[in-house]
C-alpha cells in the first residue's frame, strides 16, 4: 500500500442525497487518504450513517461524485461490486448470518467473491479470528455468542475480504457496556496496523486515541473537520461546542 499517494483513497465531492422529500446529505465533500483514520460524529439524524453507507453503495447518492480507490460509484454494477469487495463494513446490529457458523460467516465472501478454495479460505478466516481473539468459537453459531463476540466476528468477517478501507457504523452502540471495550480494543489494534478507517461512533475516548481527523455533521452537512486535539479543545462552531458539551458531560 502506498502511504504517500497524492490522490485520496476516498473522494466525495458535492454529494447530496434525498429520502423522498427529505434531504439527508447536503453538498457533502470529504477526502480520506490511505492509512487515514476518520471519526464521524454528530447528533442522531445528522446523516453520518448515510454518509458512510454511500461509500459502499448501500445507499445511492443522487448528486455529486464518489470515487473509491480510483473507481467511481455510478450505475455500473461491476464498479459497485468491485468497491464493495475492497471496502469492509461493520454494522451496529452485527448482521452475522445466523444459519452459518462463525467460520462459515468468515469464509463465505473469500470463497464466493474471491474464488478461494475452502482450505485457503478457512486458513485465512482462522488467521483473522485469531486477530480478533476469538478462534475458539469458530465452530459455533452466532446465536450462541455474546454481543461483543458477535461484533468481533463481524469485524473478522469483513477483514477476510482483505479490504483496503473499513467502515464502522456505530459498532458499539448495540452492546452492553462491559462488552464495548473488547470491541474497541480490536478496532484500536486494527488502527495500529495502518488500516484506512472511517468510523461513526459516540465513543469519544476511542476517537481521541485513534482518529487523525474528526468530522462533525449536523443536518446533513459537514460542519467542522479538524484533528482531535483541536476538535476537542477548541471547536470552532457553536453547534460543535453544544454537541461536545452534551456528549462529554456524562
Amino acid at each position: 500500500m502506498n502511504e504517500n499517494t497524492p490522490n485520496p483513497i476516498i473522494e466525495m465531492s458535492g454529494v447530496s442525497k434525498w429520502f423522498d422529500d427529505f434531504q439527508v446529505l447536503k453538498d457533502v465533500s470529504l477526502q480520506v487518504f490511505s492509512g487515514e483514520r476518520v471519526v464521524v460524529c454528530g447528533p442522531s439524524g445528522s446523516g453520518k450513517s448515510t454518509l458512510i453507507r454511500c461509500i459502499n453503495r448501500l445507499e445511492e447518492h443522487q448528486e455529486g461524485r464518489i470515487v473509491v480507490d480510483g473507481i467511481e460509484l455510478d450505475q455500473d454494477t461491476q464498479h459497485i461490486n468491485k468497491v464493495r469487495s475492497e471496502v469492509g463494513m461493520v454494522f451496529q446490529q452485527f448482521n452475522l448470518f445466523p444459519h452459518l457458523t462463525v467460520l462459515e460467516n468468515c469464509t463465505l465472501g473469500p470463497m464466493k467473491v474471491r474464488g478461494l478454495s475452502r482450505k485457503d479460505a478457512e486458513a485465512l478466516a482462522m488467521e483473522y479470528l485469531q486477530r480478533v481473539r476469538i478462534p475458539e468459537q469458530a465452530a459455533k453459531y452466532p446465536g450462541s455468542l455474546s454481543g461483543g463476540q458477535q461484533q468481533r466476528v463481524a469485524i473478522a468477517r469483513s477483514l477476510c475480504m482483505q479490504p483496503r478501507i473499513m467502515l464502522f457504523d456505530e459498532p458499539t452502540s448495540a452492546l452492553d457496556p462491559e462488552m464495548i471495550k473488547e470491541v474497541l480494543d480490536v478496532m484500536i489494534d486494527l488502527a495500529e496496523s495502518g488500516m484506512t478507517m472511517i468510523c461513526v461512533t459516540h465513543e469519544m475516548g476511542f476517537a481521541r486515541t485513534v482518529a487523525h481527523q474528526m468530522v462533525f455533521m449536523d443536518e446533513g452537512r459537514i460542519i467542522e473537520r479538524s484533528p482531535p486535539g483541536k476538535f476537542f479543545s477548541e471547536p470552532e462552531h457553536e453547534r460543535t461546542k453544544l454537541f461536545l458539551s452534551q456528549i462529554l458531560s456524562h
Partner: peptide, 27 residues
C-alpha cells in the same frame, strides 16, 4: 429476512444472486 442480512451480504461483495442463494434463501 431482515434488510441487515442483505446489506451484510452486499458489503462483502456478494452479487445479487449470491445474496439470495447463500444468505436470504437458506434463512
Amino acid at each position: 429476512v431482515s434488510v441487515g442480512q442483505r446489506e451484510a451480504a452486499m458489503s462483502i461483495g456478494l452479487s445479487r444472486w449470491q445474496q439470495m442463494r447463500y444468505v436470504v434463501l437458506p434463512q
